[in-house]
């Protein structure tokens, strides 16, 4: 099990024939992703050879879905065409659209976000590294060889902080790591991922990485309090960021007194989430929680999660 992406996922790549699309499609295939096609109306009908695999190019997302049964699409098209690409994917009724593209105007993101919601399509991103279920599938640009499969679920606004934490915890491993992106408007939030990890029997502990800007982390803290029984360990970046300046990510900005790292850390700690002061300390907190000491409530949650894992699963019951 994993969240949003498994080895069964059939993946299309919009913008596969561009430079970034080619590079990362090759990497996704090498990671075991079932890439079933590319989408480019000008190159429909051709195939692209990636080492030992020939991947067909379709004229539209719908054509690709009809021919292959694809249920995930990864978007690499340039910012000017991203809105149309996501709306096309939503029209085709695909389940998950992962938007890697950085630099999409906010009005376009607002529009495709509303459109996808209306059509029941989950969007991850934009301006994100995508998501990986180690050992099964990789939809995006997260390096697949950092960490092995395991029991930590990770959700993050930042790509490189995701890689850093995956590396620090590579020996424990991850169920799924989701990079939700650093833009002001994103399709999938920390809360969506917390809910998915809470329901995933293979996820025992959740790592939440946030950064300055907006109040997604504060809202996530409320959600943890209400609805998450598994232990959550967090890291927040941007304590030293000055007010009113955008720090790399379009959404990473402290406006007046809102969106500060201090407020996010305080909100998370108020609901019992341990927040590391550096990525390394965050990894240490994870290890501490997983080893069962010294945080007792966390251990109880771990045991609960483990107990749930040992229950016969409905699908397993059907087989026997």
């Amino acid at each position: 099990m994993a969240v949003f992406l498994t080895k069964e996922s059939k993946v299309l790549v919009q913008g596969m024939t561009g430079a970034e699309g080619m590079k990362h499609t090759r990497r996704m295939l090498a990671a075991g992703t079932d890439v079933v096609g590319g989408v480019n109306p000008r190159k429909a009908g051709r195939t692209v050879d990636f080492d030992d695999r020939a991947v067909p190019v379709f004229g539209s997302v719908r054509a690709g879905m009809d021919a292959t049964g694809a249920d995930v699409t990864v978007v690499f098209v340039p910012p000017a065409f991203s809105k149309a690409a996501v709306m096309e994917a939503a029209d085709a009724g695909i389940g998950l659209t992962v938007v890697i593209t950085e630099g999409i105007p906010v009005h376009d993101s607002v529009a495709f976000h509303a459109y996808a919601t209306r059509h029941g399509t989950r969007v991850i991103g934009p301006n994100c590294p995508g998501l990986i279920t180690p050992g099964q599938s990789n939809a995006g640009i997260i390096p697949a060889d950092i960490a092995k499969p395991g029991r930590i679920g990770l959700v993050s606004k930042s790509g490189t902080l995701t890689y850093q934490l995956m590396y620090e915890l590579r020996d424990i491993g991850f169920s799924t790591c989701v990079g939700i992106g650093g833009d002001p408007v994103v399709g999938t939030t920390h809360i969506d991922c917390l809910a998915a990890f809470e329901a995933d029997p293979d996820t025992e502990l959740i790592v939440l990485i946030g950064e300055i800007g907006g109040d997604a982390e504060e809202r996530a803290a409320d959600y943890v309090k209400e609805s998450v029984s598994k232990p959550v360990v967090a890291y927040i970046a941007g304590f030293t960021a000055p007010e009113g300046r955008t720090m790399g990510h379009a959404g990473a900005i402290v406006s007046g007194s809102s969106g500060t790292a201090q407020a996010k850390k305080a909100a998370l700690e108020a609901v019992g989430v341990r927040v590391g002061s550096t990525p390394t300390e965050t990894a240490e907190l994870v290890l501490e929680r997983l080893s069962g000491s010294p945080a007792r409530p966390a251990r109880r949650a771990c045991e609960l999660a483990r107990a749930r894992c040992e229950l016969p699963r409905p699908d397993a019951a059907r087989v026997t």
């Binding site: 902080l161 030293t240 550096t278």
Partner: peptide
């Protein structure tokens, strides 16, 4: 690039990691 008020110059890859680096330097 964003100019800040300190004495340790920072170069990193990825917005999140660089923000984190600033914090760790401050720590």
């Amino acid at each position: 690039y964003v100019k800040l008020d300190g004495e340790v110059g920072v170069i990193g890859n990825g917005a999140g990691l660089v923000m984190s680096t600033l914090d760790v330097v401050a720590g």
